[in-house]
């Protein structure tokens, strides 16, 4: 399956991306402020969003300043992500490796998997109260599934002869996992990690519905209650930046972990 190499270099892609963003902002400005094709009640103007941004950075909104909200959300996402990955990747790998484990765990997994993370909110409140633990639980559910599925697929994708070869050389147990299974499954594991991370961010908003005091999700919720669209946009931008930064970090981790792998 040949693929024509994209001749463009990295910096120029970034430039085009930046230009696009500028173009969209320009279009937004024209549509709302100048021509009023989008009435201000339906969507805020860029000026209003800037004003909201200033408000939340300087005076604070929803019981906190932008930095507090941003970092608390990043913290929650990281927690949920680590727990999900910490449990999901080993479990997925185990299920991929051992048909027995797969048959045993599958029923539970299949039963719980289709339930949306948001639907766990009522139970999360009852079981864990209104603290960060409940939020992490909701986020965890979202991130857990992609981690398991992709780790499973990762182990399954390893060529059997590699494992046989390693075995015949006397490699067993923990070493087998460390030297053969893990590296072999890594590409798909990372795909799973990306999906998990994205799920964490999108579920964060839902998680912070559970009695949050600070957080971007809390900002979004409060802005929704106040019917303050400009602040909602600020919250969305915050989430997009948080998610983007973490994904970039993950990408960096990926290139370090798999220097042999070309994307």
């Amino acid at each position: 399956m040949a693929r024509i190499r994209n001749g463009r270099s990295e910096p120029s892609r970034l430039a085009v991306g930046g230009l696009t963003l500028l173009g969209v902002i320009l279009l937004w400005y024209v549509a709302t402020s100048i021509t009023q094709t989008i009435p201000p009640v339906y969507f805020p103007t860029p000026a209003e969003v800037l004003q909201a941004l200033r408000q939340i950075s300087l005076q604070g909104y929803a019981d906190g300043r932008l930095q507090q909200h941003f970092f608390h959300s990043c913290w929650l996402v990281l927690m949920g992500f680590m727990v999900a990955v910490g449990i999901g990747v080993p479990l997925g790998m185990l299920m991929g490796w051992s048909r027995r484990a797969e048959a045993f765990v599958n029923p539970t997994f299949l039963l719980l998997r289709p339930i949306p993370p948001l639907a766990w909110i009522p139970l999360a409140i009852v079981w864990l109260g209104l603290g960060d633990a409940a939020k992490v639980l909701v986020i965890w559910f979202a991130a857990f599934v992609p981690a398991v599925i992709n780790s499973y697929a990762g182990v399954r994708s390893i060529e059997p002869y590699l494992i046989e070869a390693a075995r015949s050389l006397g490699v067993r147990g923990a070493m087998l996992v460390r030297e053969v299974l893990f590296p072999g499954a890594l590409p798909l594991i990372f795909t799973g990690l990306r999906l998990s991370l994205q799920a964490c961010w999108t579920t964060l908003v839902a998680g912070e519905l559970i009695g949050a005091i600070v957080g971007l999700g809390h900002v979004l919720y409060q802005a929704g209650l106040d019917l303050f669209p400009a602040m909602i946009v600020v919250g969305m931008i915050g989430v997009a930046i948080g998610g983007g930064l973490m994904t970039a970090a993950l990408g960096w981790l990926e290139t370090r972990a798999m220097p042999w792998h070309r994307r």
Binding site: I121, P122, I125, V126, W127, L128, G129, L130, L209, I210, G211, A212, I213, Y221, Q222, L225
Partner: peptide, 20 residues
């Protein structure tokens, strides 16, 4: 005090499960 905002259903849930 500490004020936490949420929907009525969540408030009921939290109070009845002794979490608030």
């Amino acid at each position: 005090l500490i004020i936490k905002s949420m929907g009525q259903a969540e408030i009921i849930s939290a109070m009845s499960s002794k979490n608030a």
